[in-house]
């Protein structure tokens, strides 16, 4: 089978992650869908690194993981502090910045 299929799989996973971000209301689930999108991108990177025979793709995937970890830390801290004040974990409840 053509290793290109990994790319298609990555595209599908990314799409599903985007769908989750747009559909779900719980902040944690949205965050997890974002993680899914990041992982799908990582898969694509690794596939490309295999395609080109260079390890640069893996390095980038590595850095993506680092940044994703940092982002998860901060993002969850934000969710917790929002939850403490508002007692709600729904992203729709943080809607005061409106007309």
């Amino acid at each position: 089978m053509n290793p290109d299929n990994y790319l298609y799989l990555s595209a599908i996973l990314f799409t599903l992650g985007a769908l989750g971000v747009l559909i779900r209301r719980n902040a944690i689930v949205v965050f997890m869908c974002i993680e899914l999108m990041l992982n799908a991108a990582n898969l694509a990177f690794v596939t490309f690194s295999r395609m080109h025979g260079a390890l640069d793709g893996q390095i980038i995937a590595f850095f993506t993981m680092v940044v994703a970890a940092a982002e998860v830390v901060v993002g969850l801290a934000i969710i917790i502090s929002v939850f403490r004040t508002r007692r709600s974990a729904s992203v729709d409840d943080a809607n005061l910045l409106k007309y």
Binding site: A18, V21, L22, R25, V91, D92, A94, N95, L96, L97, K98, Y99
Partner: peptide, 17 residues
């Protein structure tokens, strides 16, 4: 048009996407 600024993050996410 200002009704577009609904305050909902998901609407913004949708328009960005």
């Amino acid at each position: 048009l200002r009704k577009l600024q609904s305050g909902f993050v998901r609407s913004y996410a949708l328009s960005m996407f």
